[in-house]
């Protein structure tokens, strides 16, 4: 491992973007597309669990917003990869993200009521923060195609908005 890679890895670890740490090597556009899509799918799955389990209106409404926005971003992502004739490529980062998400969902599935609400919303804040960090420091700077970069930039604004929205919901639960 070169010094540069070690530095990039350390920087990512410091940012708390653990699953992204494995992507210290610059990801390619097909890998970036796959990571961004996977990040969206993960949030939709967590939201569907919340819609099913939570009885708190603010939490269910928030979860429905997450489903709506992330599905909309992913439709755009699929349209773009089709247009660019890029095949999203599975990679270590996507796999690490999916694995961490499956663990989190298993944890959430065991909780109920206020404990579930709190754990879900706190995880939403942390998860959006993590994805924002990865978008800003790794995915956007690595993207080669201008349209992909632009979609990721819109995705970043959506994720930043969701992070603030989740913080607001977390504040209401207290």
């Amino acid at each position: 491992m070169s010094i540069r890679h070690t530095a990039a890895l350390a920087a990512l670890l410091l940012l708390g973007t653990a699953p992204f740490a494995q992507a210290a090597d610059k990801p390619t556009d097909p890998q970036i597309a796959h990571i961004a899509y996977t990040a969206g799918v993960i949030d939709v799955e967590a939201a569907k669990l919340a819609i099913e389990k939570s009885k708190t209106k603010e939490v269910v409404d928030f979860a429905k917003d997450m489903v709506r926005d992330h599905e909309a971003v992913n439709v755009q992502a699929l349209d773009l990869v089709k247009k660019l004739k890029v095949t999203p490529e599975d990679n270590a980062t996507s796999q690490a993200l999916s694995k961490a998400a499956a663990e989190e969902r298993a944890k959430l599935a065991k909780l109920d009521g206020a404990a579930f609400d709190k754990a879900y919303v706190d995880n939403e804040v942390a998860y959006h923060k993590q994805v924002n960090g990865a978008l800003e420091t790794l995915l956007i700077p690595s993207a080669q195609n201008a349209e992909l970069k632009s979609l990721l930039e819109t995705g970043l604004k959506i994720f930043q908005g969701h992070e603030q929205h989740a913080e607001h919901v977390a504040g209401m639960l207290k």
């Binding site: 908005g161 969701h162 603030q164 929205h165």
Partner: peptide, 8 residues
Amino acid sequence: FCRFHPNM
């Protein structure tokens, strides 16, 4: 502001 995206 936008309630869904308070950064707007």
